[in-house]
Amino acid sequence: MHTHDIPFSRPTTPSQHPPQIGFYGLGAMGYPMARNLAKHRHSHPQGSSPILVYNRSRTKAENLLAELGQDRICIADSPEQLAKECDVIITSLASDAVVMSVYAQFKEALKEVNHDKPKIFVETSTCYPTVAGELDEMISGFPHTHLITCPVFGPPAQAETAQLILVMAGDYKSKKDAAYILVPAIGRKVIDLGGNLEKAPTLKLIGNSLILGFMEVMAESITMVPSILNYARKMTHDTFDGQKGFGIDGGLKDATHIRSMTAEYNATMPVIDIAHQHMLTARAIHASQKVEGCAEFEVLDWSALIAGPRVSAGLDGLNSKKHLKVERED
């Protein structure tokens, strides 16, 4: 770990007892993040309490426990247990509605405990920026309790290898304490955006708007001329497995947030509007295939938006093998 990877001074020497870490959300991103955190002795030193994990589907928590053992993982019975027993609570959740619901549970739990030492909530989900303010109102009114927003850049493959980039906003000391727990355990670098909690999710959505816009341009281009790039490979070879990439529902959620931001700031971004339409087309085709029992993937990757320009061109949306080939005449 290089000193420039974390833009904060090193925290003061911790007390005899390392902080109890909690983790809520073991999805495509959360599972490898929690696993890496539990395995990394810098963030989770020998002799410290197991990381307390919770997931709405208990099976994933049980899988993580079986993989790492009881000295590193303990399964919480409820979200409230995380809020009451943990000093640092990390959340990785699928949507704004779920985030709001979970933090409402945290709020109720905090009413029942004494707050005599710092408690930090680290929200790593991709939310609409104003959600951060609503979460802050729920959490930061309790003594010694702080929220920091910390969305992450990188797909599940980078989460597996702890190569994520973390974007942080909020209370300075809380960011510093969290950064030295999370890097290099789950990420390789922190970008500090100051005290305004809305700045981190704003930057994350701007970043995703760039990715989504480039994908839309690639989708339109390789409909005519296939090329070889990361997302282009997925589109070229129809590898639209959302369980190995970024699920299309997440892409639609982020596109909706981006479009709301462009409206708020009077900044037109028509490529994102088109990408949103094409993801809806892809999802509709996939839903029809699931009803008919012929869907190849349980969940679509957001690169399946190429279905939109394909259908407009009179081609099959999700199966390029059905396309007519141009054959050379000798």
Rank of each mutant, 00 (worst) to 15 (best):
V98P: 07
V98E: 07
K111S: 11
K107A: 15
V113Y: 10
Q81G: 08
K119Y: 06
M100A: 13
L93S: 05
V98Y: 01
V102A: 09
V102L: 09
D116N: 12
I120V: 12
A94N: 11
F121C: 02
I89C: 12
C86Y: 02
Q81M: 14
S92F: 00
S95P: 02
D116Q: 08
V113E: 13
T126S: 15
K111I: 08
A97R: 09
Q105V: 11
A94M: 12
N114A: 15
A104C: 10
K111N: 13
P118V: 03
E112G: 00
K119C: 08
L82A: 11
A109R: 06
Y103W: 09
S125I: 01
M100H: 08
E108L: 12
K84I: 11
Y103D: 01
Q105M: 12
V122G: 07
L93P: 03
D116G: 09
P118R: 10
V122W: 07
S92V: 13
E108R: 14
I120P: 03
I120M: 10
T126R: 05
V99W: 02
I89Y: 06
D116S: 14
L93D: 01
T124S: 12
S101Y: 01
A83N: 03
E85G: 01
E112L: 15
I89Q: 03
K119W: 00
S125A: 11
D96F: 03
L110V: 06
E80R: 11
Q81D: 09
V98D: 06
K107I: 00
E85M: 12
E112C: 04
A97I: 09
V113S: 11
D96R: 04
T124W: 05
A94C: 08
H115A: 08
L93G: 02
T126L: 05
L82G: 01
A97E: 14
S95W: 01
S92Y: 00
I90N: 04
N114M: 05
Q105D: 14
V122E: 06
V113A: 12
Y103T: 03
N114H: 10
V98W: 01
N114I: 10
V102F: 04
Q105A: 14
I90A: 11
S125E: 08
Q105F: 00
A109T: 08
S101Q: 13
L110P: 00
K111D: 12
V98C: 06
H115S: 10
P118T: 10
A94P: 04
K119I: 07
M100F: 00
Y103S: 04
T91F: 07
S95L: 05
H115F: 10
S92H: 00
F106P: 01
E108I: 09
L82M: 09
A83M: 07
E112S: 13
A97S: 11
A97F: 06
E80F: 08
E123N: 12
A104Q: 13
V98F: 07
N114Q: 13
N114Y: 01
V102G: 05
L82H: 08
V98I: 15
C86L: 09
H115E: 03
V113K: 14
E123W: 00
A83C: 09
Q105R: 10
S92C: 15
D116R: 11
S125F: 01
